[in-house]
Design a protein around this nucleic acid. Sequence first.
DNA 1: TTGTAAACAATAATGATTACTATTATTTTT
DNA 2: AAAAATAATAGTAATCATTATTGTTTACAA
Lengths: 130, 130
Amino acid sequence: MTKHSRQRECIKQFLATRYDHPTAETVYLNVKEKFPNISLGTVYRNLSLLTELGEIQKLSTGIGPDRFDGNIAPHYHVLCNKCGRVQDLEIESIDHIDTLASTQFDGKIEGHFTYFFGKCRDCLENKNNC
Amino acid sequence: MTKHSRQRECIKQFLATRYDHPTAETVYLNVKEKFPNISLGTVYRNLSLLTELGEIQKLSTGIGPDRFDGNIAPHYHVLCNKCGRVQDLEIESIDHIDTLASTQFDGKIEGHFTYFFGKCRDCLENKNNC
DNA sequence: TTGTAAACAATAATGATTACTATTATTTTT
DNA sequence: AAAAATAATAGTAATCATTATTGTTTACAA
């Protein structure tokens, strides 16, 4: 039976204001301003719980630590392989790839996760000191 | 200037015989039979080097440790979310999703990585004691 | 064969995440 | 509204995967 907690509420609220997919560490540093002695473990535990509850999304990009997204509406992400930033990408559904995969797989395909990679606008224009 | 090493050769050979995408730990345990005092660091270093050289492929699935694939031909992977195994999937190219992504992204899309997830045949039939 | 640079084994260090424990906050029962 | 029950917390230790360091060995070229 999951109880309410102000810390969890604050974590969720914080994610709702951010569009840059912060890491657990970043969430921790920011939530700390409201809860000065919150612990990093609490942040991790609540990020996991919120993910299980489907209230936020966890992004495991394979590059650096996991990131978290307060937007659970279906959308994709682009990883800039120069500055490392993760940007949202709204494209029409590509769920037909699941159907395609199903035809070649001897089992049940339930879904996919896809990350695009490339260079963000700022890096192309050298705006990011990189 | 990269020199030849029997350890690296052995790691590459081992991966060529395996189709289950072993972890660094598994590679280590197996190569150990031929090189009893190889160190785990050597395995990691060579797996990274071989990946950079494009002679093997690294799979960062976001679930558990990284895995390695001796097959560098373009193909996809399916993660069984019951037993955790990673299976190969040969499907026709889905690179059109990069073009689709490009139309909505203010930057340069260079590629994507996609993992499918679901249940493998054995798990559907309860053959995997799970 | 000998000099040099790359690769090694052994091990320490790091970074991200999870586990433990005694205390505190939230909810339920009286 | 007070007390009992229990989930969540802060603080901290532990774990897991991976990378870095260091002194020694191996590959290869002069």
